[in-house]
Amino acid sequence: MTGLNVLLRKELREQWRTLRLPIVTIIFFVIGLISPVLAKYTPEIIEHAGGNIQITVPVPQMKDAIDQFIKNLGQVGPFAAILLAMGTVAREREHGTAAFVLSKPATRVAFLGAKFVALVVTLSVGVLAAGIAAYTYTAILFDPPPIAGFIACCLLLLIGIAVFVALTLLASTAIGSTLPAAGVGLGAYILMAIISAVPRLGQFTPLGLGDPAHALALGDAPPHLWTSLLASLVWIAVALIVTWLSFRNQEFGP
């Protein structure tokens, strides 16, 4: 892994200086902020929107805020992951900076590893910001969720998002072009969403982490926690191994 430290520092600096890290953090923070607000006031909005028609909406509870938070982050998170990862290798190949780095004493594993870790760090900061905002507003508008369970919930959501980082990184490396890589990442998300609706099969997708995350945040016993967690980690590991296999023999030049 020669060069990993240097490359990781460079990747993290790049995330900050190109404003990806601040933008992701702000977007995720807003997502965390509005989730409990939406859970609290959506029923009231619906009641008022009904006019003369009587609509009875259950009184919102803390679990609705959690539900809203997981749903929102479960959608925005993978999209952010795809947007961040789609050009990470492809862009460097297209612009020639990959050849600049790889003609120096840095291994290809370090090159890829630094990119994956930096993207996960960026998204971790985003999830942390979202978690803090969601927890605070949920506590203000409803009751405070159990803190340990809520942290575990956020970690599971982050792992689910990291699967899409790994899959899009694979596409970016194997295809070598930014937009097709985004297409593959998006296709993978849609496929996962379809599979996640299939009973018993859904728990093997990263979106299957939503159920145990929800239960943990409420302090309940999580269903299929280890199955979904292990499945997501396997998705990540397989995607990264295939990425490396694809990248290790790639040539840079005309």
Partner: peptide, 10 residues
């Protein structure tokens, strides 16, 4: 040194 050197613009 490449004929058209590409670096990180940032």
């Amino acid at each position: 040194l490449d004929q058209q050197p590409h670096f990180y613009d940032w």
